[in-house]
Nucleic acid binder design. Structure first.
Lengths: 212, 212
DNA sequence: TAGATTGTTAATCGATTAACAATC
DNA sequence: TAGATTGTTAATCGATTAACAATC
C-alpha cells in the first residue's frame, strides 16, 4: 500500500484544501490554477503544487486543475469517499455534542454510544442507541467498528483503549488529556482542547500576528 | 513586550511540557534532567533544552531543572498563571459541553453563555447564566471579556466575530469550520474537528506509525 | 503557434539534533 | 575536585519557496 512517505505537514493541510475546493465547487467554478487557489487560501502556489504532486499529477499545464476532479481525488486520499463506522465512548456532554455533529456527510457514521450508567441503557441520542460498556467487545467485533471516539474521564481512558485495541479497533480519536500508548497498527489522533486554549492564551500575552 | 520571536512549533509543545511537569510534580519529584524528561515524553533532550532556552535559562548545570520552578515558569509563559475571562457564544450541545469542562483550574473562567433562543434566557448551565445576543456588546465591554468561544452555526460566525472584535475582544476560540478574518491584534485559534477526523481517516488507510 | 500553468529540480530557509565548552 | 548536566554553537535534516523546462 505504500507510496512515498508523506510528511505530517502535508497531511495536515489536505483537509483545508478539501474544504476550500468544496466551497469553490459549490460556487460553480469549474477550473482553478494553483495561483488562484493560492490567493484564496493564503499559501504559496508553489506549496500547493508540491503538496498535490506528492500524490500524483492532478493538473494540466496551461489549464490548471479541474475543481471537481481535484476535490474528489483529495477526498479519496483522505479516505472520506468511504464509510467509516464509529462509536463514541462516554455519553457525557461531549459525547452528546459529537453524536449530534454532522460527520456523516464526510463518511463518518456513528453507530452507537457506550456508557456505564444503567439509566441510559437503551436511550437514543439523535437516533443513536446508548449501549452498556459490557457489550463493548462483542459490538465492536460484530459491527466491525473502525473508529472509537474517547470522551470519557481521563482516569478510565487507558483501560478502555486497551479493551478496544484487543478487539481490533483501527483508530482512536482521543479527547482525554493524556497521551495514549497503543500498539503498532492502531492510529491515535488527539484533540487536546486545553492545549489549544493554552496556545491561545500564550498568543494573547505575546501577540505575534495570526495564523498557524 | 517583545522578546525574540518564538516559532509556532515551540509554542505548540509548551502545553505538553506543562502537562508532563504537572504530573511529575504531583508524583512528588523535585528535580529532573532534560534526559529524564526526554525519555518520559519521547522527544530529544536537545529539543527540550533548546525549547526552554528560548525563554531563559531555567536549569542549572550538573543539577537539571527544579520541577516546581520550571512548571511555574512555563505556566507564566503560557499565561495560565492569570485569570482569563471567557464567554461562550452558542448554547448548543457544544456550548454546553465546553461550559461543563473544567478549564477554570488553568485560569480560564467562563462568565456567560450567549444564545438567540428566548426560552433559554436566564437559565443556568453549571451555574453560568445564559444571556441573549442583544446584550453581547454591553456585556463584553462591561465585564472586560478577553476570550470568546465560538460554537455557533457556521453561517452566523463571521457576523458575530465582527461584533466581538468591535467591542474589543482579545481572542476568538473558533469551533466553526471556516477561517475567520480578523484585524491585527485579535488572536484566533481554530479547533477544526472535521479536519482532525480526516487526518485520522487518512492515517487509517495509509498507515504510517503514530505520533505527530 | 503563443500563452498559460503545471510538474519538478534547485535554492533557501527554518527546525531539529549533535556536540561540547561552561559551570554547578 | 570529579561528575553531571546545562546553555549554546555548529551540523544536519527537512520543509518551503523559487525557478524553469515540459507541455497542454
Amino acid at each position: 500500500m505504500e507510496e512515498r512517505q508523506i510528511s505530517k505537514a502535508v497531511i495536515k493541510r489536505l483537509p483545508r484544501y478539501y474544504r476550500y475546493l468544496g466551497e469553490i465547487l459549490n460556487s460553480g467554478v469549474e477550473r482553478i490554477s494553483s495561483g488562484e487557489l493560492s490567493s484564496k487560501m493564503q499559501v504559496t502556489a508553489s506549496q500547493i503544487r508540491q503538496d498535490l504532486n506528492n500524490f500524483g499529477g492532478f493538473g494540466q499545464q496551461g489549464y490548471g486543475y479541474n475543481v471537481k476532479y481535484l476535490y474528489d481525488e483529495i477526498g479519496k486520499i483522505l479516505g472520506v469517499n468511504q464509510k467509516h463506522s464509529m462509536i463514541i465512548i462516554g455519553a457525557g456532554n461531549f459525547g452528546h455534542a459529537l453524536a449530534n455533529y454532522d460527520f456523516e456527510k464526510n463518511g463518518f457514521v456513528t453507530k452507537a454510544i457506550f456508557d456505564v450508567r444503567p439509566e441510559l441503557a437503551g436511550t437514543l441520542v439523535r437516533g443513536v442507541p446508548v449501549l452498556m460498556m459490557d457489550q463493548l467487545e462483542s459490538y465492536v467485533r460484530r459491527e466491525q467498528i473502525e473508529i472509537a471516539v474517547l470522551t470519557l474521564p481521563k482516569s478510565r481512558v487507558a483501560e478502555v483503549a486497551d479493551r478496544l485495541v484487543k478487539c481490533g479497533i483501527k483508530a482512536l480519536w482521543n479527547f482525554a488529556h493524556l497521551d495514549l500508548i497503543v500498539p503498532d497498527g492502531v492510529v491515535v489522533e488527539n484533540v487536546h482542547l486545553v492545549d489549544s486554549l493554552m496556545q491561545l492564551s500564550y498568543r494573547i500575552s505575546h501577540y505575534d500576528g495570526n495564523e498557524e
